[in-house]
């Protein structure tokens, strides 16, 4: 009886949700999207050139939505904390399965190149496609390669948490310095000239904050991957 009611509830709620979505989307299609909704970022694109940053997406992530990015990083930190809390409750004893020689050698050769590419994507985030989020994830994937191929490799908890704490604290400190000097949180207090646009040192605090975001994302994603991989297989 219980199961029957569950099936009915699932079916009806699914059908109701589907009908609601279909009606909404058909409505949007028939009346077309209003032009003001469609080009919400036009004004932002106009004032974007005052900051001297060539990549408009970077300006939106770090400057116009900088406070939201701080909150999103906090969400990432809480997810990483939860995984560490749930998965590290058992003692770890590794099963020794040696990887093949080719995998080990290839991963050793590829590891520095992937790290270099990740740092390049992080540092050039205000000039070309890329930035902290992408660069951090690329660095984490390099550590993932090393963790899969070498069974005895392990990241040190204290080093990772030192990086993470340093990055989080300096994000807040830069924001508070903007509040102190320019009267708004994350104000761009480092001089930034429009004529510098396209150079590596340009845009004031924006590349600095994206590098900090990259360090934080990279260390947290590496920690998540390591916690999932190194979970003890046998009780």
């Amino acid at each position: 009886m219980n199961l029957k009611r569950d099936v009915a509830v699932q079916t009806y709620s699914g059908l109701g949700l589907s009908a609601l979505l279909a009606i909404t989307i058909l409505n949007i299609m028939l009346h077309n999207m209003p032009q003001s909704v469609k080009r919400a970022g036009e004004k932002l694109l106009e004032i974007n050139s005052q900051d001297g940053v060539a990549n408009a997406v970077t300006t939106v992530v770090v400057y116009f939505r900088g406070f939201d990015t701080l909150g999103e990083i906090a969400v990432l930190f809480i997810a990483s904390l939860g995984i560490g809390l749930v998965l590290s409750s058992h003692s770890e004893h590794h099963h020794k399965v040696e990887s093949s020689f080719i995998l080990k050698t290839a991963s050793k050769l590829l590891f520095p190149i992937i790290i270099l590419f990740g740092i390049y994507v992080m540092v050039y985030g205000h000039l070309s496609p890329g930035g902290g989020f992408q660069g951090g994830v690329i660095v984490a994937s390099a550590f993932l390669l090393l963790l899969i191929s070498h069974q005895d490799f392990e990241l040190s908890h204290s080093v990772i948490s030192a990086f993470e704490t340093l990055a989080g604290v300096s994000y807040v400190i830069i924001g508070l310095m903007g509040l102190w000097i320019l009267d708004n949180f994350l104000g761009n207090f480092i001089p930034h000239d429009i004529s510098q646009m396209g150079m590596l040192v340009s845009g004031g605090i924006i590349p600095l904050i994206y590098i900090i975001v990259g360090i934080k994302v990279g260390s947290e994603m590496s920690m998540i991957v390591q916690n999932l991989l190194k979970r003890s297989d046998n009780e």
Binding site: K38, R39, L45, T59
Partner: peptide, 8 residues
């Protein structure tokens, strides 16, 4: 910044 897609 003209003729570009919406960055938001």
């Amino acid at each position: 910044f003209v003729g570009m897609n919406d960055p938001i």
